[in-house]
Simulated assay, not measured.
Amino acid sequence: MERRNEILQYIKSRPGITFRELARELGIGIGDLQYHLYRLEKEKKVFSRKLGKRRYIFPAGFE
């Protein structure tokens, strides 16, 4: 849960960060990050948009 909060706070400070950038900058494995982002999206705390081959992640309520 603590890791998930760290991810959420990082996304809030860098809205629009790509999945790979987030994994690299936080030093989290791809599988772990996928799991935590899945949970955060289910809880409606973040959302993502795919443009081309990249997925961008935003905090809930971002416009």
Rank of each mutant, 00 (worst) to 15 (best):
R49T: 10
L8W: 00
Y56T: 05
N5R: 14
E25S: 08
F62I: 03
E25D: 13
E63Q: 12
T18S: 15
F47E: 04
L8H: 02
K53W: 05
Y10R: 08
I28E: 02
R3C: 08
R20I: 08
G27F: 05
I17H: 05
E21V: 04
I57D: 00
I30A: 07
K44E: 15
R24F: 09
K50V: 11
D32A: 14
L33E: 06
L51G: 07
L26C: 05
R24S: 10
E43C: 07
Y10C: 02
E6V: 15
S13D: 13
G31F: 06
R24Q: 10
K53L: 09
I30Q: 09
P59M: 04
E6C: 06
Y38A: 10
M1I: 14
E2Q: 13
L37T: 01
Q34V: 13
L26M: 12
R54Q: 09
F19V: 02
L22R: 00
I30S: 09
D32W: 08
R4A: 15
Q34Y: 15
I17M: 05
G27M: 07
M1H: 14
L26H: 09
L37M: 11
G27L: 04
E21Y: 04
I17D: 02
L8G: 02
F62E: 12
P15S: 08
R55W: 07
R24C: 00
Y56R: 05
K44P: 00
I11Y: 02
F19C: 02
M1C: 12
L8K: 01
K12S: 06
F62L: 04
R39M: 13
I17N: 01
Q34N: 13
K44N: 13
F58D: 01
R49G: 10
Y35G: 05
G16R: 06
M1D: 13
F62K: 10
G61E: 04
R55I: 10
I11D: 00
K45G: 02
R54V: 12
R14T: 09
E63A: 13
A60L: 03
F58I: 03
Y56M: 04
